[in-house]
Design a protein around this nucleic acid. Sequence first.
DNA 1: AATCGGAATTCCATTATATGGAACTTGATT
DNA 2: AATCAAGTTCCATATAATGGAATTCCGATT
Lengths: 259, 259
Amino acid sequence: MPGNESGTGTLGKAIDVLEAVASSPRPPRFTDLLQLVDQPRGTLHRQISNLIEEGLLSVRQDHSYELGVTLLKLASRAWAGNQFRTVAEPHLRRLHEQTGETVHLGVLKGVEVIYLDKVESMQAVRMHSQIGNASPVYCTGVGKAALAALTDAARDRLISAITFHRHTENTLPDVKALRVEIGEIQRTGVAFDRQEHEPGIHCIAAPIHSRDHEFVAGISTTAPAYRISIEQLAEWAPLVQGAARAIMDDMTVRLGPKS
Amino acid sequence: MPGNESGTGTLGKAIDVLEAVASSPRPPRFTDLLQLVDQPRGTLHRQISNLIEEGLLSVRQDHSYELGVTLLKLASRAWAGNQFRTVAEPHLRRLHEQTGETVHLGVLKGVEVIYLDKVESMQAVRMHSQIGNASPVYCTGVGKAALAALTDAARDRLISAITFHRHTENTLPDVKALRVEIGEIQRTGVAFDRQEHEPGIHCIAAPIHSRDHEFVAGISTTAPAYRISIEQLAEWAPLVQGAARAIMDDMTVRLGPKS
DNA sequence: AATCGGAATTCCATTATATGGAACTTGATT
DNA sequence: AATCAAGTTCCATATAATGGAATTCCGATT
């Protein structure tokens, strides 16, 4: 449910179609897409044809559409080649060794956090991990940490674009609550997710940002609430902050002092 | 190194740029891209701008480019929603339980195989798995199995587009050897990768195809050669073929008898 | 099997957008 | 500071996208 900032230009329209397919709970059919993206029949039809031609979209036998495997191929390269992720990787692993819990790395993208990497002991339930998963900023540790690291202007702009949705009973309900929380994060240097996204799951996160605060991200340690108390999480604050600090230092070394 | 079938239309050009970035060993700079994709300066520059605007591409501080995180987001959805993968998933898991070795699911896309899923006991070395990884058809078990399942016409067309590259000393060197191998696969119903892609790694695979042989894929069980002999692999033939058969049956049930 | 109705696809004159050559700016190197 | 290469912007032109309407396809229903 990203802020439908209808893309401009031919490419933007095409991506809009992909996003529409991506955000549909079930594979949309032609008519479904017709009302999801605001385009005339003929136009949409050709766009879909092009997307299929490029392998970005696939038809299912019932004439519904799903995202194409070319995206997997590209994403695989995107992940492997991502500079920030590469720099951060050893620090994620160290933080995981120190805490024994799952560690996430996420970057801010619009009003969402996109998870770039994850380190966990043993994935009992196999999953495509969390990588690429997009979650709202206002109810994740990484998201709130990233928000706190933004410049005031950028944050104001972004916050006004958020639409709040109550994921759990702890989810921050509105802008007011979020701003209070951000103040707290800026004071303490760490962000908590107190079961605000998934019931039973909480985490502690620290912000990561470039020198100019244009690029913001976050690192977090996540644990199930039944096993780790929020106080125990809080004790990891120095570790999480240390990892964030170390990543930022590595960035300035590897990327030049500009960022 | 995919068959540069330079995409047509505005969208195609854009994807070409993405592919160029994806296939570069190191992040390309503007001039690098200029000769990778055959486009005039001004045009390329605007295309890159558009791609960045859409989050499909990112600039690094040294003016080189890397793929953007939006691709991860889209791919995450593509993976989760993929119908074929969803249908195959339980069968992969069962095959893994039966053999105790790593199981792969891949689909044919042009002259490459794209891995859709993977099940393994314990990933000692953490990795973004193999998912989305693109490998040549002619030197992977899944790839050769898929080739064997193609209609003669489609296979001929595809084979002529392959450029052979010797990955290991066992890699099939040319079309002739590949055709012999395909005949063998069609007779026996299973394909072997005899350390043809990675030294020390071999696998046994079985083809999966839709009714009309338009869609082809494969499932494989992989093992290190030092621990599992090729004879032991061969004993799993019924299991691998059984899994492939079961997936095809499920497809016709879930997707209607047409495919 | 035949009919009907909604959905998907094709068509083409019009319009908007991408194109690409050249001029310009930036920033690194000596 | 000067030079040169790399990156960026501009704008008249060519090309590709647009969108309304007509047509075909498909799948219910009888």
